[in-house]
Design a protein around this nucleic acid. Structure first.
Lengths: 106, 106
DNA sequence: CGGAGGTATGACCGTAGCCGCATAAAGGCG
DNA sequence: CGCCTTTATGCGGCTACGGTCATACCTCCG
């Protein structure tokens, strides 16, 4: 079993992904770098909220930014989140398949 | 990019892992089936709290229980959480290594 | 059946954190 | 230098959820 400290680190990481706003931002940026205006347009959240969430993700190293004059271009490199989501998706899918089989056999 | 509904599912899943109490329960159970008394002893949480958290994890299919008379033996099958934690750990490790390199080159 | 051990649930409190509003800070342009 | 655009931050409301206490529910045993 992981040490309590490491466990806490895991939790903080998973917490970042546990909020639709943040995960959506990451997924958007995985498609390619975007500026904040585009993220507002894509997600519908307020500018201040997006700024905060990006700040959290940046501190965790999940996104990075590059200033282009007055605008800030954000991007998300690394396939970690993709891999995590893929694993979870497989799990969710298998779970639904099992439930379906249960219903059909009944 | 994943559909909003799927994204929400991901978030709910990650939320389960974002709480030390729950992740600790899973990790404990990954070492082998245990009864509730042992989980109380191992985690220090109250019985009612543990019962609630196990309920959430069970609904998500992350743990399962088997009644042995009056006692309930809980277990966590499937290496999904192990894999997720392993991926995150690798990420955390690499991030620290990079920060260390930054400091040493400065 | 009555009581004891073990588990789930209702009620409640406290806090963390999401979210927007308003505003300050930072950077470009006439 | 003033002004505008873009981003970051202080403030506050609101809700969700972690955590506990008390209690109801279940299962076995005398």
């Amino acid at each position: 079993m992981p040490s309590p400290l490491l466990l806490e680190e895991y939790c903080q990481f998973f917490r970042l992904l546990s909020e639709p706003a943040r995960l959506q931002l990451i997924c958007q940026l995985r498609a390619g770098p975007m500026d904040v205006a585009a993220l507002i347009e894509a997600t519908g959240f307020s500018q201040s909220h997006i700024s905060r969430q990006l700040g959290q993700l940046q501190r965790a190293g999940l996104v990075s930014c590059e200033r282009d004059g007055v605008r800030t271009i954000w991007s998300a490199e690394g396939a970690l989140v993709d891999e995590l989501c893929s694993l979870v998706q497989t799990r969710l899918k298998r779970r639904l398949e099992n439930q379906l089989a249960q219903l059909q056999s009944a």
